[in-house]
Design a protein around this nucleic acid. Structure first.
Length: 873
RNA sequence: GAGCCGUUAGUUCAGUGGGAGAACGCCUGCUUGACAGGCAGGAGGUCACUGGUUCGAAUCCAGUACGGCUCACCA
């Protein structure tokens, strides 16, 4: 084994082995308790980013843990066709080749897109492998697969038949760039510094005019009314009168509607039912005509009269100029307002009248809301996200699900060419030549919403995977897609399977750069997880992702932390190297933990049991950060800095039996620790585990360690704690007095009682070695040496005669300082104990602890004071 | 406008009713038979602020300030 850990060797070796041995394939036999996670399917648009790496690392930790704990673990992989995003990518590629999808035709374009999909799917699988993810590839799914498409049609037809899907003409969010409708949540609202345009519309009878204002003046071309509040005294007399719409010359009525806010603007509103959702509603109430003034690309149409052919923003500029000249537009006010942008293309979204398909959300949302009052609810971790989720559901509007794209699930609706009759069903009507299928496809999230069950054979409820592995145990995802995905899976799962699709939802945040900024292409601050792996290994990256933060919070990426985690891997590597070099070909069968163990052996075994217990508990609570901290400290501090150093005594000694016991303990501790760490750092733990004495073919299928209280030895912990205190005091003195570690000193200890004396005697060999003392005295009747440095510990005093090195004044000053510290402690404790309330109300054990401390501090202070007196005398 | 989160050591973050923690960074010393990407020792914090509850508050409650996020409205 090389002295430095090189993750590249290890990490390329094990993944092929794991998959060849089918360790990640769920059995599906029903003999073991199942544990299921479905992966949030990444888009087949490109490379995985750090967010994916984080999300999947957390899932892999849970999957590996549960697999080791004996569950029939299914972690189901797959990908999402990502309608708009993928189509845009393929169109981009076509454009480079000087082509256009319309030239190519729908069928050829889809062929090209499938090619793209295969290419990127392979790419994504390679990245999953590099991350070490324990995915069951035998069950990989894609949202456009045959089976999943069947599920999509089943859901569509069923919801349609229940009246929960309908088609109609409404105002939707239109993206003129990609030329498709969007759902409400695919629109990003940004505050924009715009203008408020004030206009006068003349009354037909010539008696004057009425003032209106708008932020989108081009929509005035489609106005079909002006509205005022029925109780607005300024306008009462005008209700029912007619105004002549400038430019167009259309005569439109002044109507009364309570929606109008009298306080806002002039109190009169222009009404454009085909270009604004509120105006559309009002139009329905008053039977107003709906006039579209643009086409699907945002270009003004024939209803825009002389502005026909202009882009909507060119039209705005020109129209404003013209209206100003005509005196219609009399004021332009700076006005900050919120403007919707397409989440995908960034284009300004146009509220647009259009015929689309919708899901009626009220009944579905209600079910999901009610679920949270039941025992079998979805548990959000951390639970604050439940509030976010419920608030959204309670205020939900109908979901526009049709998209004017080619790449996706085609809507299973057919229209008769002549009668215009509509047919909704799994298949086309029997005489297909007389019908044509709806051109549109479904929102990508419509199919993603079915993912937890469509991937398991549903709608075949008898499918063995669906029977065994559904509902899933936990969903791991970022808070940014709670609305898009989590909520939709829940209401569709309830509607179609009658069960929650997952018991827990583990929410994480976003990966940010070191300055806390979101990683983005435009900022160029993104980090490719594959680069991180190439430099430091997947284990280092995974440890960082697992331990960097607590659930629900964002994570800042720091290269230094990744590097520190490589150091940790290297530390583990070298500790193992040491163990193996001193293992003497110890075989697994020959390991013996029942021999005559040293206090170090008993202590580290106790610490191991504590670590097993705590790590298991924390894993179950998704507290991976704490798990990492515990394992890091156990390995680095307890195993490496203390146990290995202590184990060197028997290992380098002549006592064969003692050596055998210590070898066994060391091998056992490392072997068990590798198992505990394996879910987080799968590669290095497998590598080391395979080198160590072990039983079985792979750590991936080794049993998760079980805590055994009977192996704990509290005495040994007290022993080692005392030894550590003594050793630290000596080291501290050496450092302060500039006594080189290589220079021998005398160490004289005066125990206060038999118990401490015995402990010190038991630890004598360790004390001698770690203090590098020539003479070591343990004597309750010790005659205090002159000219010596002293330390007062709980239960013992220690002296180091360092004649010639000691400055008496300095030593007194040091002890005075020590005494001051103790004074403060005593004062603090006594203040507490003098408090009647504390004595009466605080729990007994707390009071007892304080009394114990008081005694200890006072004793120490006494000793220190006495020592000062001696030195002064 | 409503809701949520954060504010703890130079930095990144844990801790969430009973003596302020870790990692990294910093300072000092060390070719100690696994590791100098290491070992040993050390410095460093009125836990944002103001009140309240409590025998006891970094921790619970209310408010304030600053930073961030989400939703809604915006003619």
């Amino acid at each position: 084994m090389p002295t430095k850990y090189d993750p590249r060797d290890t990490e390329t070796k094990w993944y092929p082995y794991w998959t060849e041995q089918s360790y990640f394939e769920a059995e599906g036999s029903g003999k073991k308790e199942p544990f299921t996670i479905v992966i949030p399917p990444p888009n087949v648009t490109g490379r995985l980013h750090l967010g994916h790496a984080w999300d999947t690392t957390l899932q892999d930790i849970l999957s590996r843990l549960k697999r080791m704990q004996g569950y029939d673990t299914l972690w189901l992989p797959g990908m999402d066709h990502a309608g708009i995003a993928t189509q845009a990518k393929v169109e981009g590629r076509l454009k480079e080749e000087g082509m256009d999808r319309h030239e190519l035709g729908r069928e050829r374009f889809l062929e090209k897109t499938w090619e793209w999909k295969e290419e990127y799917a392979e790419f994504i699988r390679q990245q999953w492998a590099k991350l070490g993810l324990s995915l069951d590839y035998s069950r990989e799914r894609f949202t456009l697969d045959e089976g999943l498409s069947t599920a999509v049609r089943e859901v569509f037809v069923s919801l349609y038949n229940k009246g929960l899907i309908y088609r109609g003409q409404y105002i939707i969010n239109w993206d003129p760039d990609t030329q498709t409708a969007l759902s409400d949540i695919e629109v990003d609202y940004k505050d924009v510094q715009g203008h408020f345009y004030h206009m006068k519309y003349p009354l037909k009878d010539g008696s004057g005019h009425i003032e209106v204002a708008t932020t989108r003046p081009e929509t005035m071309l489609g106005d079909t009314a002006v509205a005022v509040h029925p109780e607005d005294e300024r306008y009462n007399h005008l209700i029912g009168q007619t105004v002549v719409l400038p430019v167009i010359g259309r005569e439109i009525e002044i109507i009364a509607d309570e929606y109008v806010d009298m306080e806002f603007g002039s109190g009169a509103v222009k009404i454009t039912p085909a270009h604004d959702p509120n105006d559309f509603e009002m139009g329905n109430r008053h039977n107003l005509e709906r006039i579209l003034v643009m086409d699907e690309s945002g270009t003004m149409n024939k209803n825009a009269a002389r502005y026909q052919g202009l882009d909507r923003f060119e039209c705005r500029t020109q129209l404003v100029k013209d209206l100003q000249e005509d005196g219609v537009l009399f004021e332009i006010e700076a006005h900050e307002h919120s403007v919707g942008h397409s989440e995908r293309s960034g284009a300004v979204v146009e509220p647009y009248l259009s015929t689309q398909w919708f899901v009626k959300m009220k009944p579905l949302a209600e079910q999901a809301v009610n679920l949270q009052n039941q025992e079998e609810k979805v548990h959000f971790v951390p639970d604050r996200f439940e509030k976010t989720y419920l608030h959204w559901l309670e205020n939900i509007r109908d979901w526009c699900i049709s998209r004017q794209l080619w790449w996706g699930h085609r809507i299973p609706a057919w229209y008769h060419k002549e009668t215009k009759e509509m047919h909704v069903g799994h298949t086309a009507p029997s005489n297909p030549e007389e019908w044509e299928q709806d051109e549109d496809v479904l929102d990508t999230w419509f199919s993603s919403a079915l993912w937890p069950f469509s991937t398991m054979g549903w709608p075949d409820r008898e499918d063995s995977d669906f029977q065994l592995f559904y509902p899933t145990n936990v969903l791991v995802t970022g808070y940014d897609i709670i609305f898009f995905w989590v909520s939709r899976m829940i209401f569709q799962g309830l509607e179609f399977t009658g069960q929650r699709p997952f018991k827990d939802v583990l929410i994480h945040g976003l990966v940010r750069d070191a300055e806390g900024r979101k990683m983005s292409k435009s900022l160029g601050n993104g980090v490719d997880p594959m680069d991180v792996i190439d430099q430091y290994g997947a284990d280092a990256l995974r440890f960082f992702l697992a331990t960097g933060t607590t659930p629900g919070n964002d994570l800042r990426f720091h290269w230094e932390k990744i590097e520190a985690n490589w150091n940790f891997a290297n530390k583990i590597w070298n500790a193992s190297r040491f163990a193996l070099m001193n293992m003497g070909n110890l075989a697994y069968e020959d390991m013996d933990l029942n021999g005559d163990k040293t206090i170090a052996d008993r202590w580290i075994l106790t610490r191991l049991e504590e670590t097993i217990r705590d790590v298991t508990r924390l894993m179950d609570n998704y507290e991976f950060g704490e798990v990492g901290r515990l394992l890091y400290n156990f390995i680095w501090d307890d195993v490496c800095d203390w146990y290995i150093e202590m184990a060197k005594l028997p290992l380098y000694g002549d006592d064969e039996a003692a050596r055998h016991t210590t070898r066994s303990v060391l091998a056992h501790v490392l072997e068990q620790t590798m198992r505990l760490l394996h879910p987080i750092m799968p590669f290095i733990t497998e590598e080391i585990w395979q080198h160590l004495p072990h039983d079985g073919s792979s750590i991936t299928v080794a049993k998760w360690p079980a805590a055994d209280e009977s192996r704990m030895d509290p005495e040994s912990v007290e022993d080692v704690d005392l030894l550590k205190h003594v050793i630290r005091s000596v080291r501290n003195t050496r450092a302060e007095m500039n006594v080189a570690p290589s220079k021998e000193i005398d160490l004289q200890m005066k125990p206060q009682n038999d118990d401490v004396q015995k402990r010190l005697e038991r630890g004598r060999t360790y004390l001698k070695r770690f203090s590098n003392s020539g003479q070591l005295t343990i004597d309750p009747a010790l005659k205090v040496p002159e000219k010596s440095v002293s330390h007062v510990l709980s239960g013992a005093e220690l002296y180091m005669p360092l004649a010639g090195l000691i400055d008496l004044e300095e030593e007194i000053a040091r002890l005075e300082k020590e005494k001051e510290k103790l004074d403060k402690e005593v004062e603090r404790v006594q203040k507490k104990l003098e408090n009647e309330g504390f004595i009466q109300k605080a729990p007994e054990n707390v009071v007892a602890e304080e009394r114990e401390k008081e005694k200890d501090y006072m004793e120490k202070r006494e000793k220190v004071t006495a020592r000062i007196q001696e030195l002064k005398a």
